[in-house]
Amino acid sequence: MSFLSDPYIVFFVRWLHVLSGIMWIGLLWYFNFVQTPGMPKIPDEQKPAITKVIAPSALFWFRWSALSTIIWGLIQAWQLHYIQSALTLGFLTQSAHDMRIGFGMWMGLIMAFNVWFIIWPNQKKTLGIVQATPEEKARAGRAGFLASRINTMLSIPMLYAMVGASHMA
């Protein structure tokens, strides 16, 4: 217990959380700002370079960095004794800090849920990793696209809440 609450260990867990989070949100923004808008401009015969090589690799790092971010973040909140207060949005302790970080945590948890249970299962169909009819592929593409866009939208207030909890004057 004393080892886990050692200030250096607390810092080290925060570093792992931010490191994983940069990879996760960096790849989320790559999908939304670069890959998805770029796909219609790529000639059909060159599209497999993205769908067979780049996207599966990007999705691998995307979903595992999402899980890593959540795990280190939850460990951090537990180490700093605000996990329960933050997940109940600060109402238990009347804490603005815990409400702010709690909003960020819930947005991050919703985003990670979207990654693992909506985006990834649908991407497996659109990329041909699992068998699907053309109609199923079209529906999966739409669902994955919207979940990814929702995550991009949530990443803006999530980061504001996470950084703001400790660094807002």
Binding site: A96, M99, L146, I150, T152, M153, I156, A161
Partner: peptide
């Protein structure tokens, strides 16, 4: 009206609106 999440601009504007709402909630709750 089309879904704002259809475009990147709509997505970013919605994200900023949620940011402002969350900030106001935190500022004025306690």
């Amino acid at each position: 009206m089309s879904n704002p999440l259809q475009t990147l601009q709509g997505t970013i504007i919605l994200g900023i609106v949620i940011t402002v709402v969350v900030d106001l909630i935190v500022r004025y709750t306690f």
